[in-house]
């Protein structure tokens, strides 16, 4: 179990009244430290469901998931929160910044729940904002930032606690081409310079091309797993 992430025959079944919706049907997967993985697939294929399970926001109905060698299925609510806090950085399609709260405070959030002293929270949050090129925007509110900038704040927040893995569910889904490039440049640099493991869901081949490995999900199953060479300029 040398991998950072190891999934074995993961199923996710939602009950909707009398009907069972099988969102994931036996996904097995390993991701090593430092990889940059793109997850592709049609709408409703189960990408978000997989990401939520990888991010410990959700538990599989069946199967096992080891993160850093720990069996996630055995953990209780508090331990899962702890894992989300320390091991995982999540980036959402809709940014999910807390409104009317400064960029700096948004980035502080994971450290805040870790109980770090205020001074440490501020210093690390400012450093994290610097990593995504937002020095000088610490006091801005989300509403005062462009979409691309907001998503970079979200990335800074995901990074601030030095997680083992960055999970991004369609991080460019709400952004224009220019902003998307901006975001992808940041992610690529984080992966290549800082060796941060990234799993990214996208619909666009152009975005997936930044990754070195591409997974394709179809009807809740992994149908393709191939290494690509980063093709973009």
């Amino acid at each position: 179990m040398g991998s950072l992430i190891a999934c074995q025959d993961i199923w996710k079944i939602y009950r909707l009244g009398d009907v069972d919706v099988q969102a994931l049907r036996g996904v097995s997967l390993e991701i090593a430290q430092g990889e940059f993985v793109a997850v592709m697939g049609a709408s409703g294929s189960g990408k978000t469901t997989l990401m939520n399970i990888l991010g410990c926001l959700d538990q599989p109905s069946r199967g096992h998931y080891w993160l850093n060698g720990r069996d996630i299925g055995r953990l209780n609510q508090n331990e899962l929160a702890e894992i989300r806090n320390r091991e995982i950085g999540f980036v959402f399609q809709s940014f999910n910044l807390i409104p009317r709260t400064s960029a700096l405070e948004n980035v502080q959030l994971p450290l805040f729940y870790r109980g770090e002293p205020l001074r440490v929270q501020r210093a690390q949050a400012a450093a994290s904002l610097a990593r995504v090129g937002l020095t000088g925007r610490e006091r801005h509110y989300p509403a005062q930032l462009s979409g691309g900038q907001q998503q970079r704040v979200a990335i800074a927040r995901a990074l601030v606690a030095s997680p083992s893995i960055l999970l991004a569910d369609e991080p460019t889904g709400n952004l224009d081409t220019e902003s998307s490039r901006e975001i992808m440049a940041v992610l690529e640099r984080l992966n290549q310079q800082d060796r941060i493991t990234i799993v990214l869901v996208t619909h666009e081949a152009e975005i997936a091309a930044y990754a070195a490995r591409e997974l394709v999900v179809k009807d809740g199953q992994l149908v393709s797993d191939r290494r690509t060479t980063s093709t973009h300029a």
């Binding site: 991010g55 926001l57 609510q77 508090n78 929160a81 702890e82 989300r84 806090n85 320390r86 999540f90 959402f92 999910n96 807390i98 959030l109 994971p110 729940y113 870790r114 927040r157 606690a161």
Partner: peptide, 9 residues
């Protein structure tokens, strides 16, 4: 969101 970044109950 708070729960996603590690807030406990």
């Amino acid at each position: 969101l708070r729960m996603a970044v590690g807030a406990k109950r």
